[in-house]
Design a protein around this nucleic acid. Structure first.
Lengths: 200, 200
DNA sequence: CATAATCTACCTACCAATAGGTAGGTAATC
DNA sequence: GATTACCTACCTATTGGTAGGTAGATTATG
């Protein structure tokens, strides 16, 4: 899901390597928690060379988020195809994140993290983060609407309202697990969030 | 709730002023999103003078979080006294945050924000954030347990599990509202999170 | 009460390190 | 030859912090 395709046509292999490291560093300390120097030493080129691939920091972080969004979209598309049942699809989505967080790979959704810092982000990055939330809300809502109409899950409100609430639970669960230092807490909360949609 | 008492005995008036500004700056850009220079110009002293009050940045942020925790504890205690009904109490808690977020005062819980950045925080700050989450989980759980046993709210799981899920919803709602640039979204999600506890 | 000592809260000056970035150059590849 | 991807050298600005000093307020002492 957040796994990106190493064959993305828009970036060189080195640029993709830089993005991968930016991803990890953002996931740990947010936008201002890492510098080009950090990336440079991980990628084994000089700091100034990073500018060749990404002229400014905002370019790098925007690209990182955009690639994360691409990967998310492809992952959600794949879920739509592979898992016909709406409830099982949401479970698979939550399960995917539970595995990631348990393995710290990645340890958090970078868009959720950047959302927290949104007011101080460059506008082009903030726009990507906002778009990610909107796309995720829309996907969850469409899954819920489908599931509700087919009886595989049961909504207590509108699909849109329930979807935004579910996404909030997922992201809040990431914060909670991180705060108390218990990765399994994410899975517990996510499972609980899903139970409310279980048909009786 | 996050309003602190201006008569706190441990800090000078100037130190409290510094903390208040640190609070705002953290709420906007997190731990690394502000500097002593930012505080200095807001408080109208030289940057070096801030070190007199807080020798290192970690000291300042730790104190800021600690004061926020004190204020939260007092606010929750006051709620316990003023609102006998458990369901109404949770509603008051959520409503308080809804007002804050609508007024951007404060625009987000700094502990939720710092939780996102936890891996890169100084340990003494991370400990305060963790303790905040644990205390909040405990308070919500106790309110839920009381409400459940009195019939004023209904739990689908254990008080501890439901409390952590509720806190996740609240914090996730903060992220969602911030991400999409719609402060009212917090209140919508929070209200929905509460509805699941409404007795039938 | 007057004076000295101490405390508090600021200042200037300075430091090393870092941050994001520019400019010009080289070598390898196509 | 043009492009790509690196390099060195350098820049300004900023960051968190140290060190020494001053002035006013407060406390202790005779």
């Amino acid at each position: 899901m957040p796994r990106h395709d190493a064959e993305s046509p828009a970036y060189s292999p080195k640029a993709l390597e830089i993005i991968a490291h930016a991803n990890e560093l953002i996931a740990s300390g947010g936008y201002n928690g890492f510098s080009y120097a950090d990336i440079a030493e991980r990628v084994a080129v000089r700091k100034a060379s990073i500018h060749h691939h990404f002229p400014a920091k905002a370019d790098l972080v925007k690209a990182t988020v955009a690639l994360h969004r691409d990967a998310t979209r492809r992952g959600l598309d794949a879920l739509d195809e592979a898992v016909p049942d709406a409830m099982a699809r949401l479970e698979a989505y939550a399960g995917f994140w539970a595995q990631c967080i348990e393995a710290s790979n990645p340890p958090i959704c970078i868009c959720a993290l950047l959302a927290a810092e949104l007011p101080s982000l460059p506008a082009e990055v903030a726009d990507e983060v906002k778009a990610h939330f909107e796309a995720l809300h829309a996907w969850v809502a469409s899954v819920m609407e489908e599931g509700n109409s087919r009886g595989s899950l049961r909504l207590g409100g509108t699909p849109v309202a329930e979807a935004t609430a579910f996404v909030a639970s997922i992201h809040g669960a990431m914060l909670g697990a991180r705060a108390v230092g218990d990765a399994a807490l994410f899975g517990t909360i996510a499972h609980q969030a899903l139970e409310r949609f279980r048909p009786r």
